[in-house]
């Protein structure tokens, strides 16, 4: 089955984001689920649709072979599944990830910051450097998009001037 209409692809990716948000709620990551629902299904879909408006909405027929990509994907997947069994099983409290810094955050967040939502206290306080870096990345990406799209087709105009003179 192949979706040639890119409009359909974009809408399906929005649906997929909502489904992913529900999966994240089941996995207790409520903050992440909220972000995924608003970002993945909201802003991403709008930006993809805006790009479709600027470009084309149907995919051209391609003569690429699918065997080599399929082979690469299957081999990668097999290698990853083979190495999965060294991971601790799902949902155990004894996994190494729960023994490192997480208990400290959970025990001391309320005393040190009086913030009950540990995700917020870790995000803004314990790991403030991380968040500062991420905010800077968003800032940089925004500047990049503005540079790329606001440079208002100057080259076209230059070409027009050259053509007319």
């Amino acid at each position: 089955m192949r979706q040639r209409s890119l409009f359909g692809v974009v809408i399906l990716s929005g649906v997929y984001s909502f489904l992913m948000a529900s999966v994240l709620i089941v996995l207790d990551a409520v903050d992440v689920a909220m972000t995924e629902a608003s970002v993945g299904a909201g802003v991403s879909t709008v930006l993809l649709l805006a790009t479709l408006h600027l470009t084309k909405t149907t995919e051209a027929t391609s003569f690429r072979g699918t065997m080599i990509p399929l082979f690469v994907a299957v081999v990668t997947g097999a290698a990853l599944i083979w190495s999965t069994f060294d991971l601790p099983p799902f949902g155990t409290a004894e996994a190494p990830i729960h023994k490192h810094v997480a208990p400290y955050y959970l025990e001391n967040s309320l005393r040190e910051t009086t913030v009950p939502n540990v995700v917020t206290s870790v995000l803004a306080d314990y790991r403030g450097y991380d968040t500062l870096g991420e905010t800077t990345v968003i800032f940089t990406a925004g500047i990049g998009v503005m540079l790329l799209l606001r440079g208002a087709r100057r080259r076209d105009r230059a070409a027009d001037v050259e053509g007319s003179s």
Partner: peptide, 11 residues
Amino acid sequence: SNPLPHVLILT
């Protein structure tokens, strides 16, 4: 559940 991965993925 462990809050640390939530923070990393949220950003």
